[in-house]
């Protein structure tokens, strides 16, 4: 059940938070750090869970919480794609927003303990995965080898650059692979799409859990590649996205088959996805 600090019983009413920091990740992605107006976080999240952010006079949008820093803040990494995100990208530190949650099932952080982790992300898809990646680093001894494969359209479009190039490669038993779609003068790293890069690196499926997120078309190609490489259906997890309005499994629209992404998802294993209509 939601823990939003609102006195009323209406699950569609948000709690009020203050934006304490805004960081430019890429030309069209910003991280918003929010905290409850009277201190603390509006609710506790597990990696992979979602929050519905309201920019009051404009609209609401469902975003994955990219990280919860104890009781300090919740971080949302949000890409500017439409009406609400456009307005959101114009706000300043100090602005108040509405937030309600936590929604969704989150990643199976417990079940993955003791495994090798393979994170595969494209574009803004790194935002939900980041909460799981940082969780693994926070509880480093609970997880074994960590591999991160991440790609974006261009160098500028790579999110979380300081972690990607500086912090994460220095973690114990961790490899970070980055790629961009087209060659650029200042880039001497890998060039190519994520699914192809994945097949090049060819991480062994032995004892591994693969976590995938990105544009739907990328997820579909990556799932195919993983299957080709011998990954079992229970070894692959993805987190999906759909247009959402209520966030509580009632308005009907975020369904994939009989499952609601806001309630039963957004995290699904490949085994679960195969039982659902491929309509996402």
């Amino acid at each position: 059940m939601p823990e939003h600090k609102c006195d009323c019983e209406n699950p569609l009413v948000p709690g009020i938070v203050e934006v304490i920091d805004i960081k430019d990740e890429t030309p069209d992605v910003k991280s918003f750090f929010v905290r409850s107006v009277d201190g603390g976080v509006p609710f506790n999240v597990m990696p992979g869970q979602l929050g519905m952010v309201s920019l009051m006079p404009v609209g609401e949008g469902m975003y994955s919480v990219s990280w919860q820093e104890e009781q300090e803040y919740l971080q949302f990494a949000i890409k500017r794609v439409g009406l609400m995100t456009d307005e959101l990208h114009r706000i300043e530190v100090g602005q108040k927003l509405g937030v309600r949650g936590p929604y969704g099932n989150g990643f199976p952080v417990e079940e993955c303990k003791g495994r090798d982790m393979l994170f595969i992300a494209g574009g803004i898809g790194l935002a939900p995965l980041r909460s799981f990646i940082k969780y693994c680093f926070k509880h480093r001894r609970d997880y074994r080898r960590i591999q991160i494969i991440y790609g974006s359209r261009s160098y500028n479009d790579l999110c979380f650059k300081d972690e990607l190039f500086d912090k994460w490669p220095r973690e114990q038993d961790t490899e970070v692979y980055t790629t961009i779609d087209n060659p650029e003068a200042a880039w001497d790293g890998h060039v190519g799409f994520v699914p192809a890069y994945l097949e090049e690196i060819s991480p062994s499926p032995e004892g591994k859990i693969a976590v995938v997120c990105g544009p739907p078309i990328m997820i579909k190609f990556v799932l195919q590649s993983l299957e080709k490489m011998g990954y079992g259906d229970e070894q692959v997890i993805s987190t999906l996205e759909m247009r959402m309005k209520c966030g509580i499994g009632k308005c009907g629209r975020c369904n994939v088959g009989s499952e609601y992404i806001c309630l039963d998802g957004p995290v699904f294993t490949l085994a679960q996805l195969k039982k659902l209509p491929p309509e996402w």
Partner: peptide
């Protein structure tokens, strides 16, 4: 000032699952 409201929607409308980034599964 303002208020948030809800209204009937129909799964038959084209923008029922239209996402802001442009993707529409249906």
């Amino acid at each position: 000032e303002g208020y948030r409201f809800r209204c009937y929607d129909s799964c038959m409308y084209p923008e029922y699952t239209q996402m802001a980034g442009g993707h529409n599964p249906r």
